[in-house]
Design a protein around this nucleic acid. Structure first.
Length: 423
RNA sequence: GGAGAGGUGGAUGAGUGGCUGAAAUCAACGGUUUGCUAAACCGUCGUACGAGUAACAUUGUACCAAGGGUUCGAAUCCCUUCCUCUCCGCCA
């Protein structure tokens, strides 16, 4: 959530930035400023009258103590006259604040200055490519054929157990998944991230804190009996560790990593996009999250991008890094880099990581702040990225390393998998 | 799931209707003292939103798990929800 102060300071700039994100309801900005004015006015009135009531009430207490019943009764009558005003003002306050808040949460985060102008994924800026696209043997096939041929993942049985999009990993296919998770976590903790294993269901407050609610309500699985949501990413539980927390300055930066399954309803896709492991309802992911001082958040974003890049390099996968354009960014992000790996048999790029700076958008909403040496509370920024999302990495590794009689593994995974080849 | 006991500031913990935004202790921070450390002593030590200021200062309101209610006045009384602990049940 944006701070009202930002809108007050420069409403026209805010509108211009919102336009970069292709946000339509620009009139909200002015409406919010007006509501905020109103809110202040009402509060001042309320405070004044409530102050009188409080003073009078104390006076009554004293009078009662002195046994001056009659005078006390008289004052009670006076206070009673304020009561209707107080309750009316109170209702106005709540109504105005609610309206203000409801409008404020409709605004997406403002894009950073370097966000490319554009609406579609084609307009994302390709900032870097790395790795080598391998030349596959003549009979090379996409991963959905390979995993069937070698019996690594069984989609049919997964569909029988649960439904489509819930893969059942099997044998070496399951072990490979486990090896990848282990490797990614080790890679992250080696870089100073503290490992967490969070709850996989979260309550409404948490879903709201990181911005999944109200924006992405329909994309999460919802356990209605208990009003809990299955997490779409570890970002939700892990970032919410610091909801309503005031950090000490020396505790920053907070660096966390977590493995979790991710659950996404993702209705509406079809065709090659959802073939095989390209898009599923349940997948595994290892996430990195940081909470940092505002002045450092863009430097940290670059560090996180470099970190993920190094991980991809260690997997010997061809990759490219995209700076997302305004139209392709998430609601909550100020700047996002997507990582894609090249899936040689499918001959297409697959998104495997998304690294974002949220600036104060999540922390403001979550009421996470820091306190400096002078006891001043200061805002903090939050960032996160996938490091990495498993299924598409799995797909790319399987496809790019296929040989005629099996599937090889990159060196980094040999010790984790216990072999230099998957099959 | 059943029965009981609780949820107060960073921590421990007092507080059953007004003098309590909250005692006391500890921790933390600043200072005095000190060869150094420790101890002792003095001081500071919640958050949010307003008013005010160049900025401090100062000041109003709200907040004692959350939300409602009673009352002139609620941490304190009532209701609902959530959470924790103990015992029992169930269970990986």
């Amino acid at each position: 959530m944006l701070q009202v102060q930002v809108l007050r300071n420069n409403p026209e700039l805010v509108k211009a930035k919102l336009a970069v994100k292709h946000f339509k309801q620009l009139e909200l900005v002015d409406e919010i400023v007006v509501l905020d004015d109103e809110r202040k006015k009402i509060q001042t009135e309320y405070d004044t009258i409530q102050s009188k009531v409080n003073t009078a009430s104390k006076e009554i207490g004293k009078l009662m103590g002195q046994g001056k019943k009659e005078e006390a009764e008289q004052m009670k009558a006076e206070v009673a006259a304020y009561k209707t005003q107080v309750s009316a003002l109170n209702e106005q306050t709540i109504a105005t604040e609610t309206l203000l808040h409801d409008k404020l949460i409709l605004l997406p985060n403002l894009p950073a200055d370097i966000v490319p102008i554009g609406k579609t994924p084609e307009e994302n800026l390709n900032v870097k490519e790395g790795g080598i696209i391998p030349t596959l043997h003549a009979k090379a096939v996409p991963h959905w054929d390979l995993i069937k041929q070698y019996d690594l993942v069984d989609f049919e049985t997964g569909a029988k157990i649960t439904g489509s999009g819930f893969p059942l990993y099997k044998g070496k296919g399951a072990k490979f998944q486990r090896a990848l998770v282990q490797y990614f976590l080790d890679f992250n903790t080696a870089a100073g991230y503290t490992e967490y294993l969070p709850p996989f269901l979260v309550n409404k407050d948490s879903a709201y804190g990181t911005g999944q609610l109200p924006d992405k309500d329909g994309q999460m699985y919802h356990a209605t009996e208990d009003d809990l949501y299955l997490i779409p990413t570890a970002e939700v539980p892990v970032t919410n560790i610091f909801r309503d927390v005031i950090l000490k300055e020396e505790e920053l930066p907070v660096k966390m990593t977590a493995y979790s399954p991710c659950f996404r309803r993702e209705a509406g896709s079809f065709g090659k996009d959802v073939r095989g492991l390209n898009r599923v309802h349940q997948f595994e992911k290892v996430e990195i999250i940081q909470i940092v001082e505002p002045e450092k958040s863009y430097e940290v974003l670059d560090q996180m991008v470099t970190h993920v890049e190094a991980l991809l390099q260690s997997l010997e996968l061809p990759y490219r890094i995209l700076r997302l354009c305004g139209g392709d960014m998430s609601f909550t992000s100020a700047l996002t880099y997507d990582f894609e790996v090249y899936s040689t048999a499918q001959e297409r790029w697959l998104e495997v990581s998304s690294v974002s700076n949220f600036e104060g958008f999540q922390t403001n909403r979550m009421k996470c702040r820091s306190k400096d040496g002078n006891n001043k509370t200061k805002p903090v920024h939050s960032l996160n990225g996938s490091s990495l999302a498993l299924p598409r990495i799995y797909a790319a590794l399987v496809e790019n390393n296929q040989v005629e009689d099996g599937i090889l593994l990159p060196k980094a995974l040999h010790s984790y998998f216990g072999s230099d080849r998957l099959v």
